[in-house]
């Protein structure tokens, strides 16, 4: 049984396709992040699951309960879904208690009080019940919004850019807190963001979307290290590419010389490929006879990011600043670059 199952979901309005035959499955107690640039359809997908998008084809089920297919459309109020918004969406005319108790209309007073107290404790705001939303900070408001959704005991939590209105230092603290809370409560969640760092910190798996489709879905590590397209590789982090030629089953000819692969190369000998090199895969050493020249140095605290001109191409590399005597590169320095051993990723031209 899966927490959410989406099959062949398509959506288009005004003749532009927003979602195209999309499939996605969430396991129980799993947090999946929908990551992508604005306009890739990630918010539409979230709205479709919540029942706020009506022009759809395809099938959506939660715990084998059909929300949407060619003949059913379950209105949002019956779906038992918690929805968390970027602007928190707390009701400004109600205090924290009434906000959290909003969905508990049918309960008795004591039951209500108990439930509200319980979820407020979970988000560590038990003493704020009397306050009004405008008296709370952004982080507190978002916690109340989450408490409100939890009080309704939803089968699935949907979060639409929930952290993007928060300051950097509050943001990651809250992300870890909420993640822990969801894991404790065995809550499955679908989380939309355009920030990969948030995705890394919050989700178990990341689904990277592009133009209405999921291009790759996997753990953050896999997406970063084994991207299946150039788009994914670029989205997940800085990337250098070099043209390589397959020599045999175990090596490539490159501008760095012959590079041996850890695994068997499937392509035919002589085929031209593009090899992905992350900045951390290239070592830099000063050498007065080096052919590479430093073009630009950006001090980034723990690291120096160095742009190097080598063999008619620019490379971005990083050098750790682990001690104060550490090498300081300057523009114009002659250096040598070398590729460190790792699992190579190649793309066809």
């Amino acid at each position: 049984m899966s927490a959410l199952d989406i099959q062949n979901l398509s959506c288009s309005y005004q003749k532009t396709t927003v979602l195209e035959a999309l499939n996605l499955t969430l396991n129980d107690n799993e947090i999946v992040c929908l990551l992508g640039e604005s306009g890739c359809g990630k918010t539409t997908l979230l709205r479709a699951v919540a029942g706020l998008q009506t022009e759809l084809s395809g099938k959506i089920t939660i715990q084998q309960k059909t929300l949407n297919d060619h003949k059913t459309f379950m209105p949002p109020e019956l779906r038992k879904i918690g929805l968390i918004f970027q602007d928190y969406a707390l009701f400004p005319h109600l205090n924290v208690f009434d906000n959290v108790a909003f969905s508990l209309a049918k309960m008795s007073k004591t039951e209500k009080q108990q439930r509200v107290q319980e979820v407020l404790t979970l988000v560590q705001l038990a003493d704020m019940a009397e306050r009004f939303p405008h008296q709370l900070s952004g982080g507190q408001q978002q916690r109340i919004a989450i408490a409100r959704a939890l009080a309704y005991q939803p089968d699935l939590m949907l979060l639409d850019e929930p952290f993007s209105n928060l300051d950097q230092h509050v943001r990651f603290q809250l992300i870890h807190e909420i993640r822990q809370l969801f894991k404790q409560r065995k809550m499955s969640a679908l989380f939309v963001t355009h920030s990969k760092e948030e995705g890394f910190a919050f989700a178990d798996r990341i689904a990277l979307m592009q133009a209405g489709k999921i291009v790759q879905i996997d753990t953050a590590q896999k997406l970063y290290r084994q991207p299946n397209t150039v788009y994914v590789a670029n989205f997940m982090g800085q990337a250098n590419y070099i043209n390589v030629e397959v020599v045999d089953k175990y090596s490539y000819q490159t501008c760095f010389g012959l590079l041996g692969s850890n695994s068997v190369i499937e392509q035919q000998a002589g085929q031209q490929l593009r090899l992905l090199l992350r900045p951390e895969h290239i070592a830099i050493t000063p050498d007065l006879n080096g052919e590479a020249v430093v073009k630009q140095v950006d001090f980034q605290g723990a690291l120096q990011q160095i742009t190097v001109d080598f063999s008619g191409q620019e490379f971005i590399v990083r050098h750790s600043n682990h001690s104060s005597e550490c090498l300081q590169f300057n523009i114009g320095d002659k250096v040598v670059l070398s590729v460190l051993n790792h699992d190579f990723v190649t793309f066809e031209h």
């Binding site: 209105p75 949002p76 918690g82 970027q86 909003f102 919004a145 309704y152």
Partner: peptide
């Protein structure tokens, strides 16, 4: 904010109740 309507809808209130309570 339209998200208030959506919040109310996903918290189990239909359109009429959302208008009345929110």
């Amino acid at each position: 904010s339209p998200s208030l309507d959506l919040a109310s809808r996903t918290l189990g209130h239909g359109p009429a109740k959302t208008i009345w309570r929110v």
